[in-house]
Simulated assay, not measured.
Amino acid sequence: MKKIALFPGSFDPFTKGHEDIVLRGLRFFDEIVIGIGTNSTKKRYFPLEVMKELIARTFSDYPNIKVISYDDLTAHTARMLGARFLLRGLRNTTDFEYENGISQVNRYVYEEIETVFLITSPQLAPISSSIIRDLHRYGQSVDDFLPYSLSELNQLNREV
Rank of each mutant, 00 (worst) to 15 (best):
S69I: 10
P147K: 08
I132H: 07
E99A: 05
G35T: 12
I21E: 00
P126H: 04
N154W: 04
K2A: 03
R133V: 11
E111D: 15
V33W: 08
F96G: 05
F29T: 11
T58F: 03
G17Q: 02
M1D: 09
L86S: 02
I21S: 01
V50M: 06
N92W: 04
Y110I: 13
R44Q: 01
S121F: 00
I132M: 03
F117T: 13
F96P: 04
T58E: 12
L90I: 14
D61V: 04
V33S: 10
P122S: 11
D12E: 12
F29V: 06
F59Y: 15
S129W: 06
P63V: 10
F14M: 13
D12W: 07
R84P: 00
T120G: 04
E152N: 13
T115D: 04
G17H: 02
F145Q: 05
S151N: 12
L146K: 03
R79Q: 11
I36P: 00
E49T: 13
H76I: 09
L124V: 02
V160M: 07
H18I: 13
D95N: 06
I55G: 00
G139A: 13
F145E: 03
G37H: 01
L6H: 06
G9P: 02
S128Q: 03
N157E: 15
F28D: 07
N39R: 11
S60P: 07
D143M: 05
S130G: 07
E114W: 07
R24L: 06
K66W: 00
N154Y: 09
F59N: 12
S149N: 13
S103C: 06
